[in-house]
Design a protein around this nucleic acid. Sequence first.
RNA 1: GUCCCCGUAGCUCAAUUGGAUAGAGCGUCGGCCUCCGGAGCCGAAGGUUACAGGUUCGAAUCCUGUCGGGGAUACCA
Length: 580
Amino acid sequence: MSILQTLKDRFRPVLVDLVGTEDAEKALDLIRPAQDARFGDYQANMAMPLKKQLRKPPREIASEIIGRLNLDDLCEPPEVAGPGFINLRLRESVLADRLNAAAGDSRLGVAPVSQSRSYLVDYSAPNVAKPMHVGHIRSTVIGDALCRVLRFLGHQVTSDNHLGDWGTQFGMILYGYKHFLDTDAYAKDPLGELARLYRHVRSLMDNDEAIAKAVLAETAQLHAGDSENRRLWQEFIPVCLAEIDRMYGRLGVHFDHTLGESYYHDRLPGLVDELIASGLARRSEGALAVFLDGQETPMLVQKQDGAFLYATTDLATVRYRMETFHPDAILYVVDHRQSLHFKHLFAVARMLGYNNVELTHVSFGTVLGDDGRPFRTREGDIVGLESLLDEAVRRAGEVVAANDESKPGGPELSPEERQRIAETVGIGALKYADLAQNRTSDYVFSFDKMLAMNGNTGTYMQYAYARIRSIFRKGGVDPASLRGSGAAIQLETPEERALGLQLLQFGEALDQVVVDYRPNQLTSYLFDLAGRFTTFYEKHSVLKAEPDSLRQSRLLLCDLTAETIKQGLSLLGIDVVEQM
RNA sequence: GUCCCCGUAGCUCAAUUGGAUAGAGCGUCGGCCUCCGGAGCCGAAGGUUACAGGUUCGAAUCCUGUCGGGGAUACCA
């Protein structure tokens, strides 16, 4: 159980006694890690808001709470400060005991949640007919990290990649295939040729209404079951899937299910009939619309020409997921421009009776270029995901090479090792840069920033990890046997104490991630952890520490730090390297 | 027009969801290498949190208004 949870359990009976069960829970939420180490390790802030209810000065309330608490085994005597803050400082022995338990635990002292929930996470969802690009990074990386954190905490997670495999983009490719196909190019590189056709038709549509209409007609024929279009679709899909699978392989992302829009196609007519029958949907301006209270625009579920829309598919998808997976929550990791769509979707889902499920749009901002506009190449094209990964790896290679050259004992890595490390560091840096952002903000993309060895970057975190591992190599110490040796962590200095406390708060950081589905809570934690480690490491010798018990204690602290960094990065979908 | 998001150090971003003196990195300035990886560490300067009101013990955070930026807004997804 986390320190925070332990403290809450101690406060609970006192607060229940004071203000009743319901208000006590609210008050317990006001126990927090201290914002400033001068105030101790944790602080309880409930005395101030309870002023009105209890009709006493907050400081008096704080004193009364302290008087009824028995925290002697956990904390130094609590202090009341300022307007009524209760400052708590943990006993060194408590920290040491918990650290020793964590050091020997594969979960690093993080207990699984007591109440496991079932999550369905919908993320990535590229349109498969066109190459993946920079716009897919955020959904893919954030969704993957959320799945990993939720699973680690003991929740049941189903990931589903809701591919765009049935939309207008296929009409474009079908039209292009029929009019502009380069047969030789298609034979040699089907994907490249399909991508070319997509771009070509895309540009034609903008200036030629007749072509735009013809493209929609191709799409409609595909949906209507036209045998030629279906055959071509069957031919295109494996090509497209092979490509995105290659990308996911490189990113280390895996889905439990890949049920694209096409999967739901047969379910749409029945769903729409039901919406009409139940009176939820009605004709408006030739289309079929569901009107919502307080909403200016309705949600359209069928076009004038009879074609269905993505709202229709999304509704069918909600129903399928509810019937198949029975989730407690469905998370949609989709950019913020679609917030109105999800507002509509969730409202209609409630009207269909899906009231016992959390429906959350985990929205995120746009990746911008230096100019503050959405990130593009110099030529103004959308940046392809593959070239983005290649460039990140290439630049990581330069960083790794320069770093290796400057090692005190000379270079240690072969060209092959450098290449392998560059792949891990480059892709890790790319992911980390995205996850370290508050997901709701737009952010400015910069290779230089993401690969910097300073600051809150993936490269810095991987470097911190490699440095710790290097201590063990240099000292000839095997971490596994150290853990089993019976050696114990002791907290001799302020730096060790600060590091130790941070290590024990790993689980609390993960809890923070889940509260609002914000992976940057974890990157912040890891950056802070690395900072406390380097402060400790600069000031105190590890390998040369005496007596031997102190040396062992510090080695254990190093090891637990490394393991926590490794586990934390792993929960972000990022690998570590032992040397770099 | 309406709705949503945003505006924080010169730059890029945080801020435990209403808590104490708003923090990091980059950049600037000043210290620290006989020593476990110096691409490091320690310190300083830099802020009226766009602006004006309000709510309360307490506001970057909540409410109202103004200004500025972005997004969405009926048959793309």
